[in-house]
Design a protein around this nucleic acid. Structure first.
Lengths: 186, 186
DNA sequence: CCTAACATGTAAACTGTTACATGATTCC
DNA sequence: GGAATCATGTAACAGTTTACATGTTAGG
């Protein structure tokens, strides 16, 4: 009587996916997330380590202690069950939730309550923010991303990266227009 | 000894801001949020009504019962204190947090684990999703947005709207390129 | 010697959602 | 008569963050 296993939270698939891409320890996963998926899915340590324990308990990953010197360390591998679970999730037809929480957009939306130059300042701040994001993303276009060895390097992380870059470029362009437009009136 | 009041959560400013733009009841605010700010800041009823109670208790808004027939209803106004709080928030210099939670991007990032045509399907699904969003946003460009009466119509909601449209247009364009690129290889 | 990076974890608190509950009114 | 909309709310839960806690190792 296999009751259908309750679906895992997206965060669990991030862990599974990162291990599959070559990350070994929880620390590795955290590093990888912080330079890549964090722009559309962030994870904190307080989530990560319990998730690893949970996935191991469920048999989707297998861990073993692999200390470096006296520094404790635990490395994991994705089990066949875990591989299947990841693929099933990737293939599953479902609505794909997309949520944004952006305080800057909120302030922009309500900016009629304050002076126009405050609105201009806000737009400028948003532009700077996207420029900073681009400075994180652009250099990664070059980096080889070849954790798996080399035989069949993953291509989709690069696609996700390029999408992120395109979005922030368009944000910058639009904000640039708004700045001009608002200053014309001021 | 006015201890500096603990800062309100962004959701509280949405409520304050929407009332200022002409919403009267909690229900009004919910409607307004669902067609506008929800694309960068959503609110559920379970958050909204307690927030209204909290803001009233703090003196930032003032409510009175205004039933329609036998259907109970409570309307609110922003007090001078509330107005000040909103303006102070809008003018405050601070880091503006920006977070995205997008399951589609996650699947895209890890799509090397499945067949290429699954990746293509995912890209198509994401494109459809942004197209649907545009269908919500574009019509609002025309709508007059004149809740305050007419004397001085708010302009920034329109700017926020145009930014959202620009972003989704660029997403669609980028995804379109990826589809072509992936099919060339398949 | 000291700082940054490596490495893992827990407890408490907080935020936010889902599902539920209730009832009136309008429009077809 | 029934569905959609108007209108307000609560309880339980899920997910996430912050702050704390601890110790090692490499490099300047």
């Amino acid at each position: 009587m296999d009751r259908p296993a309750p679906p895992l939270p997206p965060t669990a698939y991030v862990v599974l996916g990162m291990l599959r891409l070559g990350a070994q320890s929880g620390y590795d996963i955290k590093q990888a997330v912080d330079i890549s998926t964090r722009f559309f899915w962030s994870i904190s340590e307080a989530q990560l380590y319990p998730t690893l324990a949970d996935l191991e308990e469920k048999g989707l990953i297998e861990g073993r202690d692999a200390p470096r010197g006296k520094r404790k360390r635990r490395v994991y591998e994705v089990t066949p069950t875990g591989e299947t679970a990841l693929k099933r999730w990737l293939s599953r037809e479902e609505a794909l939730s997309f949520e944004v929480r952006d305080v800057a957009m909120l302030k922009l939306f309500f900016a009629d309550a304050v002076d126009d130059d405050q609105g201009v300042a806000l737009v400028a701040q948003m532009r700077t923010r996207s420029e900073a994001t681009l400075e994180h993303l652009r250099p990664q276009l070059d980096s080889t991303f070849e954790e798996t060895g080399d035989e069949d390097p993953p291509r989709f992380p690069g696609i996700a990266l390029r999408l992120g870059i395109a979005v922030h470029e368009s944000i910058i362009a639009a904000l640039h227009d708004f700045e001009a437009e608002l200053e014309r009136r001021g």
